[in-house]
Write a protein that binds this DNA or RNA. Sequence first.
RNA 1: GCCCGGGUGGCGGAACGGCAGACGCAUCGGACUUAAAAUCCGAAGGUGAGUUAAAUCACCGUGUGGGUUCGAAUCCCUCCCCGGGCACCA
Length: 874
Amino acid sequence: MPELRKKYPFDKIEPKWQRYWAEHKTFAPRDDSAGKKLYVLDMFPYPSGAGLHVGHPEGYTATDIYSRFQRMRGCNVLHPMGWDAFGLPAEQYAIDTGTHPSITTRKNIDNFRRQIQMLGLSYDWDREVDTTDPGYYKWTQWIFLQLFNSYYDPELEKAQPIALLQDALAETPQRQDEWKDNPFLAGTRKGFFGKSEVGARDLVRQLFIPKMRLAYESEVPVWWCEGCKAVLANEEVNADGTCDRKGHKEVYRRPLRQWILRITKYADRLLKDLELVDWPESIKEQQRNWIGRSEGAEVDFKTEAGDRLRIFTTRPDTLFGATYMVLAPEHSLVEKVTPAQQRAAVDAYRTNAATKSELERTQLEKEKTGVFTGGYAINPVNNEKIPIWVADYVMMGYGTGAIMAVPAHDTRDFEFAKKFGLEIRTVVQSPAGIDPQGFTGDGTSVNSGPITGLPTPEAKKKITAWLEEKKLGKPTVQYKLRDWLFSRQRYWGEPIPIVHCPEHGAVAVPERELPLQLPEMKDYTPAGNAEPPLAKATDWVNTKCPQCDAPATRETNTMPQWAGSCWYFLRYIDPHNDQAFVAKEKEKYWMPVDLYIGGAEHAVLHLLYSRFWHKVLFDLGHVSTPEPFMKLVNQGMILGEDNQKMSKSRGGSNVITPDDVVRDYGADALRMYEMFMGPLEATKPWNTQGLEGVYRFLGRVWRLYCNEDGTLILDDSEPSAALLKALHQTIKKVGEDTDTLAFNTAISQMMIFVNEVTAQEKRPRKLLEPFVLALAPYAPHLAEELWEKLGHKQTLAYEPWPAFDEALLKEDTVTIILQVNGKLRDRLDVPAQISREDLEKIALANERVQEHLAGKQIKKIIVVPGKLVNIAAS
RNA sequence: GCCCGGGUGGCGGAACGGCAGACGCAUCGGACUUAAAAUCCGAAGGUGAGUUAAAUCACCGUGUGGGUUCGAAUCCCUCCCCGGGCACCA
């Protein structure tokens, strides 16, 4: 905006009040207040070098308005901000320039803080957290050790200290009292000592116990991105096989030793506890899909050679329709079932499948492929011999890596069978008019021995019970959710606090040695051979075993960026505590988070991972709630004026920066405009003229109270009844709408009020003083300034929200609409108390109504008191 | 392909099953001004009738087609389009 006279002195007012709030620590809540506690949280940002984007203030303003409003309603509000500061860009910059990532990070944080503070958000800045601060990541490491030192007890269905398991398997247990009533531990001990010989027990302990930990090591094929020189998590690989971070194309699997978190043990609870939270249904649905629970049965087929071939199916009722089997190319039985004459073809297929990139396997590969192994399996329900195929449409990672194919009732099997000329046998009767071949819905079993004639759900139950009785199968639940690949081959992340000892294996760094800090380094480049950069810091790597003091080496993998954000909301509660990650009583007071606002891009991962960590901490007694976030709202995206995503790569022409907007229009205008654009959850385009409209409104408010020179012009006249009513309507609507986050309509109501008062000569203080309070959550700087001009010496942040008088809102007369056959024909003002009968009489006597009733017969008269009369006639 | 959202003026959007289009933008007209900006006041869904101009009136209108209802933007079904997510998960 070029040299335009400001409509009101926001450039003086805003810095003034921001200084006041900071100096008075206005927004510091108390940990022991009598008021109702309220924890209002924003998803903390990654402080990128690009700075704040207009999308950020949208969510921040929403939580800020809500927080300010609730403070005025007497709530004790915790509203903090911090930085999710580990991340690749700072490390990449370090590789390119040698600048330590902490320097880049600090600089970016300073810039983000400056930008956020410029918006006048009511954070308690004394609680700021930074995930890269050793004082913070000390506790991230501590939580990792909680996971490492726990196992999931299948009987108790919760995490338990691994020490109990170790004790239960010890030659001379010390803590029997603690586990003798635990069926899992007592049972495990019984089985262990029953089977293993003394000499073998140590070996079994060494192998078994580490695998039971919630954080465990495993050699797994992982996604390696050649471009990033880093391992990617499953969720960082796009469906088309490219890298989700930078779009690199060379992404393939390679085996690597990795730290894994056993999130799958929590699959059921993560699914079930979604019922406890007030989240958008779409987010819940995405989490449910991600967890991907499906109930079915494992069924044991036999190969001709007599090997057990176990499959998973969700449709055991279609067992009689199985006409072939499919093994994943990686399945261990493939070799065994393949006779010599088929070996060449099968090997060729498997090699080909292994080298195929994910891109080819999912995108280009629409046609099904596979080869016949030459081997056969026996169907346990009818002893029929059916061929075994290998095909890559069956994946090793899900179920058992093998299926029974029922082409008549499974789309994939159907396609495959048609292509290779395999038998398609109908065993489910479809509803009339639908082809049973390829019918995948529920119907009635046919040609299925004992379950013939049963509807699908019952058929499933009966056949599963039969299988179980014959020890041929059992009901099973499968999940799509995989364990969480937790390690990264990167420098700029939390070091994993583990020491590798030749004698004792992976040993936890003792708690008193935390934080385990990152070493200083000169060179941050990865070796490129999957050795993390930390491996080069030999002084740091070489250490002693915490258990036996023998030479040992430190873990050189670091944690992923998700780690710090899994629990930051807990640290805000007690950010400077160096004895605990959060003090128990404070956690109990503040948790759970009452309102959490952020982008929908975190619908699955961040929210699922935080929930998982939270449940582990809950099981171990460190936190008091099973779920961390009670109400969740996703703010919508803000598009550029061209209706496109704002992006620098588009030449930056459509990017609006908060700095420019605040400079030209002020923070209050930016805040209000972002809220006025439309519903919080909606995606909506930026429009600078719209911003100016809101800015004009703030100017109108200013002029309502002040002269050109800023002197107050209010008077002590009695406001008219009409204006008093307008004020009370406004207070009511703004209160209700703010409470339900309907900020756009709250602002409309304030505009209506200001328009009405502007039209009057008088400026009654009785009207305009309460209005300042209603405006305050939205335009806090302007409101504080006016409040001060009105003679108040203290911030209005804790002034009680103005009450509205219901009696003033009552209408003496109401406008009634008259309809004939549902069409509006006239409207008239009548006393509010009018009786139905009178209303009906008036309506029938109405001239316009009479016109439209001419020549018609009245069939029915609907009277809605206070609203309308509708006459149905024909 | 499947699962979520969503389609309302020129634009952003309002509207407990009961006056469609609040509020804002853009537009047009007026006041103020030498003039402009700023500000203030006012008009405005479309089509047609009416009239010097109005007032006024009728019909049509919430993606499409159907249904429920005295009455549907709102509830139910069909289809179309847009946005987001998942994608051989057995």
